[in-house]
Amino acid sequence: MADGRNDEASTATDRIRRTARTARGEVEGRIHEVEERIHDIEARAREMDARIEKRVGRNLPKALFFGLVLGFALLFSLIFVTELFMLFGAALVVFTSYELASALRFAGRDVPRIPVVIASVGVIAPAYYFGAAGLWWAFLAGAAFVTVWRLVEQLRPSLRNDPAVSLSTDLAAGIFVLAYVALLGGFAVVMTAAEGGEWWTLAYLIIVICIDIGAYVSGLSFGKTPMAPKISPKKTWEGFAGAVAVALLAGVLLAIFMLGEAWWVGLVLAGAMIVTATVGDLTESLLKRDLGIKDISTWLPGHGGFLDRLDSILPSTIAAYLVFLAFGGS
């Protein structure tokens, strides 16, 4: 009897073990299937990212993340404490002027980066506290500062007889950086400091962002006809059409619900932004092509450099300021 009970217990134990091994095998099989599916999804995602990056030249997830970070910082500085916009603007000016000066130095222009950065930052406070007049005087003072610095550098014996040194070209490049980054960007500071101007600054930035997004989505979905193949092969007329449609809609909505202006004022603002943003984008592409580089820098993952993100915004600033003076600056 004892032996029979032992046999039954042993048989039951064996069944339990077999059942456990079968269950464990099934679980491991399911886990293996899940892992394979995850790997397959990851591979497809990487393949999709690679296709998108090849087509638009950007790592989309990184671009979105850093774009959102910059966007929230900008919103906070404009909506809650406008004085913080000076700090935000100063930080952008520092990085952008430094990277553009560095790119020009890479191309053989001996641009003095330290004085260019100092002069660029120097326009922010005068623009905020003294308006357009303060911005212009600060820009002229900065240009003089950069010129004197470069002339003093020329006194070095190592440069005095160097035939490769072109003083006029170097000075022109330095002042170009100051004008392109600090002077144009300074008008956003002037506008923000004016009564109600922070909403106009936010409006024109939103429209320019909508132009970029509209061109990106429409170009990615329908783009076939290159706009300027020798300058920027990825830009298409289909993308431009999408940018125009989105910008005009955004302009009308912003004019009515945020600026408190007539709907046609939004069309005027959006129309100006479409022209200046497109010209700015193509101009920066032409500049990079002339310098022989893909991105001005690699400081912003997924974006390239700061100028790669501000290429549409900087030229649009002065146009937005003029529209603000015409309709919102009273």
Results as ranks from 00 to 15, higher is better:
residue 1 M to S: 13
residue 3 D to L: 15
residue 5 R to W: 13
residue 7 D to N: 07
residue 7 D to V: 09
residue 10 S to V: 13
residue 12 A to R: 15
residue 13 T to M: 08
residue 13 T to D: 05
residue 17 R to V: 15
residue 21 R to H: 12
residue 22 T to S: 14
residue 25 G to F: 10
residue 28 E to I: 04
residue 30 R to G: 12
residue 32 H to V: 07
residue 34 V to R: 10
residue 37 R to E: 11
residue 44 R to C: 12
residue 45 A to R: 09
residue 46 R to K: 13
residue 50 A to C: 04
residue 52 I to G: 12
residue 53 E to R: 13
residue 54 K to Y: 15
residue 59 N to F: 11
residue 60 L to D: 07
residue 60 L to E: 09
residue 66 F to T: 07
residue 74 L to V: 12
residue 79 I to Q: 12
residue 82 T to Y: 00
residue 84 L to M: 14
residue 86 M to E: 08
residue 87 L to W: 08
residue 88 F to L: 09
residue 89 G to C: 07
residue 91 A to E: 02
residue 91 A to K: 01
residue 92 L to P: 00
residue 93 V to D: 07
residue 99 E to V: 07
residue 104 L to N: 06
residue 107 A to P: 08
residue 109 R to N: 11
residue 109 R to F: 15
residue 112 P to S: 03
residue 114 I to V: 13
residue 115 P to W: 02
residue 116 V to W: 01
residue 118 I to F: 12
residue 121 V to Q: 01
residue 122 G to F: 06
residue 123 V to H: 06
residue 125 A to R: 05
residue 125 A to I: 12
residue 128 Y to M: 03
residue 130 F to C: 11
residue 131 G to T: 13
residue 132 A to F: 14
residue 133 A to S: 15
residue 142 G to A: 03
residue 152 V to L: 13
residue 155 L to K: 13
residue 156 R to D: 15
residue 156 R to L: 08
residue 156 R to H: 15
residue 157 P to N: 04
residue 157 P to E: 10
residue 160 R to L: 10
residue 166 S to L: 07
residue 173 A to E: 03
residue 173 A to I: 04
residue 174 G to T: 03
residue 178 L to D: 08
residue 179 A to M: 10
residue 179 A to Q: 05
residue 184 L to T: 05
residue 184 L to P: 05
residue 185 G to E: 06
residue 186 G to V: 08
residue 188 A to R: 11
residue 189 V to I: 13
residue 192 T to P: 04
residue 192 T to G: 02
residue 194 A to K: 09
residue 196 G to I: 06
residue 200 W to H: 09
residue 201 T to H: 07
residue 201 T to I: 12
residue 208 V to L: 08
residue 208 V to D: 03
residue 209 I to V: 14
residue 209 I to A: 14
residue 211 I to L: 09
residue 212 D to S: 09
residue 214 G to C: 07
residue 220 L to M: 15
residue 220 L to E: 09
residue 220 L to D: 12
residue 220 L to I: 11
residue 221 S to M: 14
residue 225 T to C: 00
residue 227 M to Y: 01
residue 227 M to W: 01
residue 233 P to K: 11
residue 235 K to P: 06
residue 235 K to L: 06
residue 242 G to A: 09
residue 242 G to Q: 08
residue 250 A to H: 05
residue 250 A to V: 05
residue 250 A to I: 04
residue 253 L to Y: 01
residue 253 L to G: 01
residue 254 L to A: 01
residue 255 A to L: 02
residue 260 G to T: 05
residue 260 G to L: 03
residue 264 W to P: 00
residue 267 L to D: 04
residue 271 G to D: 02
residue 272 A to V: 01
residue 273 M to L: 08
residue 276 T to C: 10
residue 279 V to M: 04
residue 283 T to W: 03
residue 287 L to Q: 00
residue 287 L to G: 00
residue 288 K to C: 02
residue 293 I to P: 03
residue 293 I to T: 02
residue 293 I to C: 02
residue 295 D to L: 08
residue 303 H to D: 02
residue 303 H to F: 01
residue 303 H to N: 01
residue 306 F to I: 13
residue 308 D to G: 06
residue 311 D to Q: 01
residue 313 I to N: 00
residue 319 A to H: 02
residue 319 A to P: 02
residue 320 A to D: 09
